[in-house]
């Protein structure tokens, strides 16, 4: 092992950003899709935890990590459909349903997940992008999971879709004005249900990443609230898929700060470093807010903007 001195901190932050950001990215992309269609799904934390459990269980039983990812995505679709269908009923509040589904998802995951805490499931493969470096720390930091790359591709694809395609336009119309969508002959409810289901699938995949790659085990504490933070990231990213990538990387890197600083000897006050992601959020939100454009970019049909 090469001794990197203080360089260990930026290397660790880079590694942390790559390792920890993927669940944030997938959940926030799923939420962007849902919210651009005019719904808020706060239940993605539950979907994430259930996806983590379902993915781990199926990967263990079938012996294939990719089967686990697929199962997690399917579970996410089911939760998304449930949310979308219930919210299509008149006078149903999507925020309340989201919280209910969050509790249901985590509860079901804990209930079914008990036998899978101890067994070891196959892990998702990683691509070694650090082969050019002779430094083991850099090699470890650049061990990138396929899902991370898939997440970035997804963000680019979604940004293009929302900006330049007919599907994107339909989604945006439904999200910005139900009346306009109806006038165009669209069926807002059906489109919202579809968007919520797709968003749920993303959150399920995020869960599978947690349990099948990093940290790579199923336990009840596996999410530690990342699903909730990712939903908040959407506001932070102003409903823009590309901003979600930066926000996710920022949060991943900030999470690596505490352990990295302790490992180079800056060990006093680690509780303070652990608060870094939250301080960062506050700081950026204050910096980017203004009385004139408080919810710039927010879809018009969101229940928080109406």
């Amino acid at each position: 092992m090469t001794d990197l001195g203080l360089w260990a901190v930026p290397v660790a932050i880079l590694g942390g950003a790559i390792r920890v950001s993927t669940p944030f990215l997938f959940v926030s992309l799923g939420e962007v899709l849902t919210e651009r269609a005019g719904r808020i799904n706060l239940g993605l934390e539950g979907t994430l935890v259930f996806g983590a459990m379902a993915g781990y269980a199926v990967a263990y039983e079938s012996g294939s990590a990719w089967a686990g990812v697929l199962a997690a995505a399917l579970a996410g679709v089911i939760f998304g459909l449930l949310h979308g269908l219930i919210c299509s009923l008149p006078k149903v509040n999507d925020i309340a349903i989201g919280i209910a589904l969050m509790l249901l998802g985590t509860g079901l995951a804990f209930f079914f997940g008990t036998p899978y805490v101890q067994p070891v499931a196959p892990r998702l493969p990683a691509i070694d992008l650090g082969f050019w470096s002779g430094i083991p720390q850099v090699q470890a930091a650049l061990t990138v999971n396929v899902l991370f790359l898939a997440g970035i591709a997804l963000a680019l694809g979604m940004a293009w879709m929302l900006r330049a395609t007919r599907v994107g336009l339909i989604l945006r119309v439904v999200g910005d004005s139900t009346d306009a969508a109806r006038a165009m002959g669209l069926r807002p409810n059906a489109i919202r249900i579809g968007a919520t289901a797709a968003g749920g699938a993303f959150a399920g995949v995020a869960g599978a990443y947690l349990s099948l790659f990093y940290p790579g085990a199923w336990s009840q504490g596996v999410s530690s609230g990342q699903g909730l933070m990712a939903v908040a990231l959407v506001i932070f990213a102003r409903w823009n898929p590309l901003n979600c990538v930066w926000a996710a990387l920022l949060f991943g890197g900030a999470g690596a700060l505490g352990p990295a600083l302790q490992s180079v000897g800056l060990s006093e006050g680690y509780y303070l470093y652990y608060a870094a992601p939250y301080v960062l959020t506050l700081g950026v939100l204050i910096a980017t807010s203004s009385p004139n454009r408080a919810t710039a970019g927010a879809p018009g049909e969101l229940s928080i903007t109406k």
Partner: peptide, 28 residues
């Protein structure tokens, strides 16, 4: 012996990060 405190009894992502930081620091 290098020690890293996570601050919580159960926090898998932070435990994994702490372990990686220890490995990066040369602990074997």
């Amino acid at each position: 012996c290098q020690v890293i405190f996570t601050g919580e009894w159960s926090m898998p992502v932070k435990e994994a990060e702490a372990t990686n930081a220890l490995c990066d620091a040369g602990c074997d």
